[in-house]
Structure formats: C-alpha cells, structure tokens
Design a binder for these strands. Structure first.
Length: 228
DNA sequence: CTTCCGATATACT
DNA sequence: GTATATCGGAAGG
C-alpha cells in the first residue's frame, strides 16, 4: 500500500506534489516556501495567498484560448515556473501543475519574506515588512524574478529557484474565495489564503473597462471567504 | 479606507 | 490596428 507521507518542512517539494489539478494543490501550497538565490543573496517567501487556474476549461486562465507562445510553459511539466508580464510594468509568477499536456497553474499572489529581508527590502525600495511580498507583482520583485525566469524548474535540487515544503497549516484557517483581477470565471472560488495573515493582499474585484460616458464604477470586495 | 492612472507585451480583429 | 491585462504606487479622505 502506498502511504502518502507529508514532505517534511524545509525539504524540496517533490514534483508529484504538483502533478495534480491546480485547485487541489493550491490550498496545500499555502505555507510552502519559494526561495531564489542570486549573486546578491537569497530571498525566501512563505506563501500566504495563491490562485488556481485550470487550463482550457477555465475562462480566467491564460490557456483558455489554447496554446500560444506566452503560455507554452503551462503545457509542460509540473514544477516549472510560468512568468508573464502584465499591465505594462509588472511580472507575475505561477507554478505549473498537472502532467505535461494540460495547462494548469497556480499564481503566487502573496507571502511573508522569511529570509533575505534586507535584500528584499532593497529590491522593494524600502517597503515595510508586511508589504514586501503582499501582491503578485510585489512578490516577484522581492524574489528578484523577471522575464528570463520563465520556464525554470523549481523542483530541481540544483536549481537556484526552489519550492520547499512548509509547516502544516490548520485546515480551518485556509479560506477560499473568488479570484482577483479575473474578468471571466470570477465567481469560481479558486483563490486560497491563510485567514488573518497580514501579508494577504487586499481583495480587488476585476474592474470592467470604463468607457467614457459609461460610468460603471463597480469595485470593492472583501476578505470574506469559505472555510475549506 | 478610496480613486486614479501608468506604460507595454500579447492576443485578437 | 486595437483592446485588454492573474497590478502597484501615489495621493486624497
């Protein structure tokens, strides 16, 4: 019989951990640690907020309209990193899930810097401890991740970009709710976060494009979610 | 807490 | 050619 043993905290996350549907993996990724080592030093972030994107079935996913040069990494093996550029100035980082051929991924939305605080603060131009990685683009800045990190393997022991297992999170403090910034499929509760953690980003619903003369200024949300 | 708006790769018509 | 984007910083209340 196969006993599924939890990976001890600090140990590299096995690729098999990510070879499952993103919405199942995502809550279990909370508390895990992303670590990036550069010549400047190492920064590590403990994840407190993530979002699952489920391939071609998910209207919110970058792979919803099929394979393109940008989303190609999502179709590859689990454990690889999908980095994309958005809003003309930001990078966001995902971990690819499921076996090659499917296009699931998990967006790393926020976390707590647990190593390399000085370096992260420097990269984030003096932001407070709480704000260092509070938001997906902030997280990539704190970690020193950019475009050329797209397609790197975070489950390779010799990699300078790694995912490590974290201490177990009590299921009752893991909440789920709608995703941020997603126009289509916004009602699907595939955002997961650690309840009450100060590094979880402020929820902002997708803002529909405001046409001149069509002042639909719908906004706001909340941090309320469903316990899982 | 809120609103405003930048600056551009990417995908689609 | 044009619309949109898995957003953040600054400034106002």
């Amino acid at each position: 019989m196969t006993t599924t043993r939890r990976t001890p905290p600090g140990e590299l996350l096995p690729r098999s951990f990510l070879a499952a549907p993103s919405m199942e993996v995502a809550p279990r990724l909370l508390g895990c640690v992303i670590e990036h080592e550069t010549t400047q030093g190492t920064v590590a972030v403990r994840l407190t907020e993530v979002e699952a994107y489920h391939g071609e079935l998910d209207p919110g996913s970058h792979a919803f309209r099929g394979r393109t040069p940008r989303n190609a990494v999502m179709y590859g093996d689990p454990g690889f990193v999908y980095v994309y550029f958005t809003y003309g100035m930001h990078y966001c980082m995902n971990l690819v899930c499921e076996p090659a051929g499917t296009a699931s991924a998990i967006l790393l939305r926020a976390g707590e810097v647990v190593e390399g605080i000085d370096l992260a603060t420097d990269r984030r131009r003096g932001a407070s401890l709480r704000e260092l990685a509070r938001g997906p683009a902030r997280l990539t800045v704190a970690l020193g991740i950019a475009r050329d990190d797209n397609g790197r393997d975070a489950c390779d022991p010799s990699s300078t970009l790694r995912v490590r297992a974290g201490a177990p999170i009590a299921p009752n403090v893991i909440l789920a709710g709608p995703r941020v910034g997603v126009a289509a499929g916004a009602d699907t509760p595939w955002r997961f976060w650690i309840d009450g953690d100060p590094t979880v980003s402020a929820y902002r619903r997708h803002v529909p494009k405001r046409r001149p003369g069509n002042p639909s200024t719908s906004r706001r949300g909340g941090t309320e979610g469903f316990s899982s």
